[in-house]
Amino acid sequence: MTLALDLASLLLLAVGLAFVAGGTLGLVRLPDLFSRAHATGKCDSVGASAILVALALQGGFSFGDLKLLLLVALVLVTAPTAAHALARSAYRTGLEPWRRAPAAGWRRGAERRDAGAP
């Protein structure tokens, strides 16, 4: 039983760390606010909750576990909301989403799309 709990904890910790590392990498490497908010918002909520659940599994079903699970609920609600609010206000105040510089092959199609956009 303990072994199963430990393995589950280890697995969740690994998943959480992978998500946090991915989110951090995205924050550093992605080109604009929207893609960065996408990376950090998603990965921090999943990564942090996975780590918290892993810790809760180690708590031996105590009152502290309940607190950790409440924290998971809090993180799952607030992190996406913060990412949404950031991206929304950036978009509404006119920040242009980043686009890949159009390659020669599909330039005409992109121009037609831009011209037709409201």
Partner: peptide, 15 residues
């Protein structure tokens, strides 16, 4: 500045 986002409104009311 902007109309309030329904998502933010809901979450703030919840929390």
């Amino acid at each position: 500045a902007l109309p309030v986002s329904p998502v933010v409104l809901f979450v703030v009311r919840l929390l």
